[in-house]
């Protein structure tokens, strides 16, 4: 992965020298040209084309912003309701993520999304305990976390 980025920067640099102009714009154009070259040569690369990861990361960020706004509307609706009609509880969410920073990222995203707040890890970091503000259906809540965020994080890191 790092090797691909190095090649890409090298191509951009060569492009800049060939054009006889040393500025950021030419470097940027060269970088895009390098991306295309790497894309068409992706069959010969040992690893996955690295830009696919960047796209996955952008998708993750968009999903996150969408969920963040949804979370706020949810919480505000509960706050403004005259009667507190909620069933809070702590649920254990098993996770497939392996490295520590992936789990950290997942728990951060959980904290900032609809009605859930990560509050404890099991010692082996395979389970995140989540306090949810409204859990009528436990399995559905677990499913939602696993299918949205965990999947998006796996796209970026695998």
């Amino acid at each position: 992965m790092a090797f691909q980025i190095l090649i890409n920067i090298a191509i951009a640099f060569i492009w800049m020298l060939l054009r006889d102009e040393a500025n950021v714009l030419e470097f940027g154009i060269g970088y895009v040209v390098g991306l295309f070259i790497l894309y068409f040569l992706r069959r010969f690369l040992k690893f996955r084309f690295y830009f696919a990861r960047v796209i996955a990361l952008v998708k993750l960020i968009l999903l996150f912003i969408y969920k963040l706004i949804e979370a706020n509307i949810d919480v505000i609706r509960i706050i403004l309701r005259p009667k507190l009609n909620i069933e809070p509880g702590i649920i254990a969410v098993p996770t497939r993520l392996e490295t520590e920073w992936e789990v950290t990222l997942l728990s951060t995203l959980i904290s900032l999304t609809p009605g859930t707040l990560s509050m404890y890890f099991s010692p082996d970091a395979k389970t995140i305990y989540v306090h949810a503000i409204h859990v009528p259906d436990k399995d559905k809540a677990i499913d939602e976390i696993q299918n949205s965020f965990e999947k998006a994080i796996l796209e970026v890191t695998k």
Partner: peptide, 20 residues
Amino acid sequence: MWDRSTQDDLAEDMKKYRKN
């Protein structure tokens, strides 16, 4: 927790972790 809370998965697991 609030007395109307419906579940607490952490309570039992916590005892297990403490024992370990």
